Simulated assay, not measured.
Amino acid sequence: MIGLLGIVIVFGMVFGGYMLAGGKFGIILKALPFEMMMIGGAATGAFLLSNDMSAVKQTLRDMGKVFKGPKWKHEDYRDLLCLLFELIHIARKNPVSVEEHIEAPDASSIFGKYRKIQSDKEVVSLIADTLRSASMNYDDPHQVEEVLEKRMEANLHHSMHSSHALQTVADGLPALGIVAAVLGVIKTMASIDQPPEILGKMIGGALVGTFLGVFLAYGFVGPFAAKVKAVVEEDAHFYQLIREVLVANLHNHATNICIEVGRQNTPTHCRPSFGDLEEALKTVKQDAA
């Protein structure tokens, strides 16, 4: 909703101000289809030229994050902490019994309680791989933390590609606008023998190219890139929480302490309160009893 509001404000303030200042839309509307064809078409071609098909598809999907926002919400962080509590509790009570959950997460009764988390392959894989490493006596917390850190850095780098691709397009749009404007000037110079009022309209049409390139770059594509980056970075906290809890577990802290470490490392606006989490964990403990 806030993304749509931002678009309305950009259009309203720019064109509303232009209209109130006495500007006429005739020249803009006449030149717009041709300028958009040149600028938008060139930007699209450059985008396709600089990315492979998988990156193109990922970018198109990620543009929806501008309107949807982060994938992981307040209740998802609470559910993740409950899931990790239950898995750690079982692993410490009977290391063998946790294997059925980490080897077949799709069929796990524990993962099945949290469908949204279960549907994310990277989250499930991150949890299962780390618990599996612990069961194989690969229990040096510092080594595990380093491995997890590198893995999450690689995932974050991949997830950021959409933002970088959009920002590259945003950086190129003003220059493409100048290209379109120069072509308009060339067209105008070929008609230099026309009356001033005709030349004025032709020059105005040429300047629409410069306007459109800058407008699209700083009014839309650049903000889209920034929003995608912000959403990806926020969602990355979900994976970092997994690292913090499971590394604390390898340090042999009490299970409640491991979960509290995770809670404290949750972003403030998504962090469940201590009381809220305790209530959720009580239900988990009762089910496990």
Rank of each mutant, 00 (worst) to 15 (best):
D120V: 06
M1A: 11
D62Q: 15
L166I: 06
G45C: 11
Q194W: 07
V98W: 00
R243Q: 14
F211K: 02
A128Y: 07
M63L: 15
M160V: 03
N51M: 08
E103G: 10
V144E: 09
T168V: 06
V66A: 05
E75W: 07
A226N: 13
L216I: 08
A21Q: 07
S54N: 11
M19L: 15
K282W: 08
E103S: 14
Q194D: 04
T255E: 11
V14Y: 11
Q143R: 12
N155Y: 12
T266Q: 00
F220I: 09
T168C: 03
G64Y: 02
G23T: 06
V284I: 15
T59K: 06
P70I: 05
K285Q: 13
K24E: 13
L81T: 07
S163E: 04
Q167G: 13
L32P: 12
V182T: 07
P141S: 01
V123W: 05
V185Y: 09
E35D: 10
L207A: 08
I127M: 03
F15P: 01
L148V: 01
I117M: 13
V144T: 10
K187R: 12
A181H: 01
L216R: 04
A181L: 09
Q58P: 04
I203G: 03
I88C: 04
C82H: 10
I242P: 11
A288L: 14
K30M: 13
I7V: 15
A107L: 10
A248K: 08
I28S: 01
F224C: 08
M13T: 15
T283R: 14
R151F: 03
G22F: 06
L84I: 04
S54P: 00
V144S: 07
S108C: 01
A190C: 03
L199P: 00
E260L: 02
I127A: 02
I110Q: 04
V144Q: 08
Q143D: 11
G112C: 05
A107P: 00
L250K: 05
H161A: 05
N137C: 02
E279G: 14
L166K: 03
E103A: 08
E122M: 05
G22R: 07
A254L: 14
V232S: 14
L207S: 11
N265L: 07
P105L: 06
K113N: 07
L199H: 06
H101Y: 08
H74Q: 12
L83M: 04
S162H: 13
K24L: 11
E75P: 01
L4N: 07
G204W: 07
A280S: 15
A134C: 08
E244M: 10
A170I: 00
V185W: 09
D171S: 12
Y18C: 06
L183K: 01
P223H: 04
E244V: 15
L87Q: 03
K282G: 14
M19P: 05
G12L: 12
V144W: 00
G200Q: 12
N256M: 15
M19V: 13
M38S: 09
L241T: 13
T59P: 13
S109K: 15
N265G: 02
V144D: 05
M136T: 05
P95K: 00
M13D: 00
F67E: 06
C258K: 06
G17S: 12
